[in-house]
């Protein structure tokens, strides 16, 4: 037993451990290369390409989201601008309209005043004319009366003095009645 054991101690197994064997190198090379080839073709290529694709699609999606956000902001800004412009326009139009209305009112007022004045003047003129005509008539009538009176007096001149006086008085009374 002991001798057998001693022999096994000095045997070559430890040396075997660090000596590469040709057969296993051969199998390892062949099988590993086959595995490498098959995995590269059927596993790593689809895996890596779809990983890459997914990453680029995620990146694209993120970029597009950013872009959309930016566009939204721009849109919002332009909307606000439009709104502000519209408001300004409205204010302007309102102001203009009120100005025009005021002008119209003013014009109408002026026109009415003018017309009124004109009518008043016309009326005054007419009145004046009437008045003048009436005065002229009065004058004429007075003259006619005076002439009539004078005529009657002249007719009765010769009869008597009291009667003349009475006559004058009656004539005068007649005039007053007129």
């Amino acid at each position: 037993m002991l001798t057998q054991y001693d022999v096994s101690l000095t045997d070559d197994p430890p040396m075997n451990l660090v000596t590469p064997e040709l057969g296993l190198i051969f199998w390892q090379t062949v099988i590993f290369l086959i595995v490498l080839f098959l995995l590269a073709k059927f596993a790593w290529r689809p895996i890596l390409s779809s990983l890459k694709e997914r990453e680029t699609s995620i990146e694209n999606a993120l970029r597009m989201a950013d872009q959309a956000k930016l566009e939204m902001q721009q849109l919002k800004a332009s909307n606000e601008k439009l709104l502000a412009e519209a408001r300004l326009e409205r204010d302007r139009i309102l102001k203009e309209a009120s100005a025009v209305a005021a002008q119209h009112i003013e014009e109408a007022k002026n026109k009415a005043t003018e017309e009124g004045n004109r009518m008043i003047t016309q009326a005054r003129e007419a009145i004046q004319q009437e008045k003048n005509m009436a005065l002229a008539e009065v004058k004429n009538t007075a003259a006619q009366l005076s002439i009539d009176v004078a005529e009657r007096i002249l007719r009765r001149e010769l009869t008597d003095a009291p009667a003349q006086q009475q006559l004058v008085d009656s004539y005068l009374k007649e005039v007053k009645l007129n």
Binding site: G23, I31, V35, F42, P46, S50
Partner: peptide, 30 residues
Amino acid sequence: YDFSLTKNAFALLLSSVLMLILFISVGNGF
């Protein structure tokens, strides 16, 4: 020249088959 399918060569074959099945199925999943 010893080209035997030793225990290690056999284990190599088995693990290679395992790897092929696993990763090709993963690749197909993708």
